[in-house]
Write a protein that binds this DNA or RNA. Structure first.
Lengths: 214, 214
DNA sequence: CCAGTTACGCTACGGCTCGTAGCGAAACTT
DNA sequence: AAGTTTCGCTACGAGCCGTAGCGTAACTGG
C-alpha cells in the first residue's frame, strides 16, 4: 500500500553510488572471468561494498548480471535513420554486433538466457530489460519504411495478425542471425556481411507481402 | 607413436556402457535441474558410477555436457527431401525446433555457448560436435536446390568466395532465428512460422543472386 | 598361468563459494 | 531526540569441486 515509485521512505536511503559501482564491477569481473568463474564475493570486493549489501538488492547472480548488461543495451541501442530500410537494417546490425563483441556481453547474455530456460521470473526480467527494447527498433524501422513507401501500409481489415507476426519474425531473424554469427560461428560481423543480411531481409520481406496466403 | 585410432592398448578397457550411462544421466539431470544446479556428483550417482570415473574421461562440466547434447544432434538431425527448397527449409526448421524444445537442450546449449566465449578449446569442440553437423545440412540443401534448378549453379570463375559466404549467411540466419524464437522470444515454432521463415529465405536468396555487386 | 598395465569403486580431504546471521555504526525522517 | 533503514564487518554451516590414495577388477602379452 505504501510503495509508490519514488516513495520517500523513512530510514537511511540506499546509496545510488553503490548501485552504479556494483553494476560496473559486475561488468568488469564478467569481462575478466566470464560467467562461470564470476563470484559475488569478488564483485563486492571490486565495488568496495560488503557482500551483504549485494544480497540485500539482488536475489542472486542471475538478476545482478541481467541488470548489469541491460544498462549497456539501454545506452547503446538506437536506430539511426540512414535513408533506406536496407541501410537502416545494416546500421542496426552493425551496432548490435558491436555490443555483442564486448567481453562483458559475450558470455553474460547467453548465460542468463540459458538460466532463463527454467526460471520464469528471470525470463520476464530479461524480456522487459532487453528484448522489448530491441523489438521496439523493429517496429520503428517498419514504420519508417512505410512512410518512405518501401513497404505497403497496414491493410487493417485483411489480416489483423499478419503485421505483428511479420515484426516478430523479422526481430527473431535479425537478432538471432547476429547472435549466431558472433557467438556460434565466431566470425566477424562486418559491413559486407551486414549488407548481405539487409538485402536478404528487404527482398524477402517484399516476398512475404505478395505471398500473404500463408 | 603408438596411438592409432582404434589402438588395442594393454590393460582394462574403458566400459562403453559406463559412457552411455553417464551421458544419459547427464541429460536426465540437465532436464530436471538445469545447467546451474547440475552437479557432477549427482550425475555420477544417477549413472551408478564413481565420481572419479567421470573426471578420468571429461575435464569438467562443459566438456561433458557438450558430448551429452551432441549425441542428440547426431541422431536427430537430418534433412528430409520434401520436393522443394522452401519445403526442405520448413522441414528442417521444425526438426531443429523440436530438438531445442527438449528440456535437456534448452538450457544446455546456451550455457555451453556462453562458456565457449572465453574457452577456445570448448568452442572448437562445439564446432566439431554440433555446428559443423548443422552447417552440412545447408550445403546439402543448396545442392539439391541447384539440381532442381531453383537456384543458379556455381559460376566458379566469377566470385569464388560468394558461394560459401552465402551458405554461412543462410546457416546463421536459419539456426539463429530458430534459437532466438525458442529461447529468447519463447514462442512456439509451428508450421506457420516455419513457413513464413522459409518464404523469406527463398525469396531473399533469389535477391542475393541478382544483386551480386555487394 | 603369471606378471604387467590400465580402469574401476570407494573414501577422504583441503579449498572455495554460497547465502545468512548478528552486531554496532551511519544516515535520514519526523 | 527517537525511530527506522542501510551499511560494513565478521563469522559460520553447508554444499560442491577436483584430487589423492588404496585395494580390486578386467584385459594383454609372454
Amino acid at each position: 500500500m505504501c510503495s509508490s515509485p519514488t516513495a520517500k521512505r523513512t530510514g537511511r536511503p540506499r546509496s545510488a553510488d553503490a548501485d552504479r559501482a556494483i553494476l560496473a564491477a559486475t561488468r568488469a569481473a564478467l569481462a575478466e572471468q566470464g560467467w562461470g568463474r564470476l563470484t559475488l564475493g569478488d564483485v563486492a570486493a571490486r565495488a568496495g561494498v560488503a557482500k551483504t549489501t549485494l544480497y540485500r538488492r539482488w536475489a542472486g547472480k542471475n538478476e545482478l548480471v541481467v541488470d548489469a548488461v541491460a544498462a549497456l543495451f539501454e545506452e547503446q541501442l538506437e536506430l539511426p535513420d540512414l535513408g533506406s530500410l536496407q541501410a537502416d537494417i545494416q546500421g542496426v546490425v552493425l551496432r548490435f554486433a558491436e555490443l555483442l563483441n564486448r567481453p562483458e556481453t559475450r558470455t553474460a547474455l547467453m548465460a542468463v538466457i540459458a538460466e532463463a530456460a527454467h526460471d520464469d521470473a528471470l525470463r520476464l526480467r530479461i524480456r522487459e530489460a532487453i528484448v522489448d527494447r530491441q523489438k521496439h527498433l523493429v517496429v520503428l524501422g517498419r514504420k519508417r519504411a512505410q512512410q518512405r513507401g518501401e513497404i505497403p501500409p497496414e491493410d487493417g481489415a485483411a489480416d489483423s495478425a499478419a503485421g505483428p507476426a511479420r515484426d516478430n519474425l523479422i526481430f527473431d531473424v535479425v537478432a538471432g542471425a547476429v547472435v549466431h554469427r558472433v557467438m556460434v560461428s565466431s566470425e566477424p560481423v562486418d559491413e559486407e556481411w551486414a549488407g548481405r543480411l539487409a538485402v536478404l531481409l528487404v527482398v524477402g520481406l517484399a516476398g512475404l507481402h505478395t505471398a500473404q496466403d500463408l
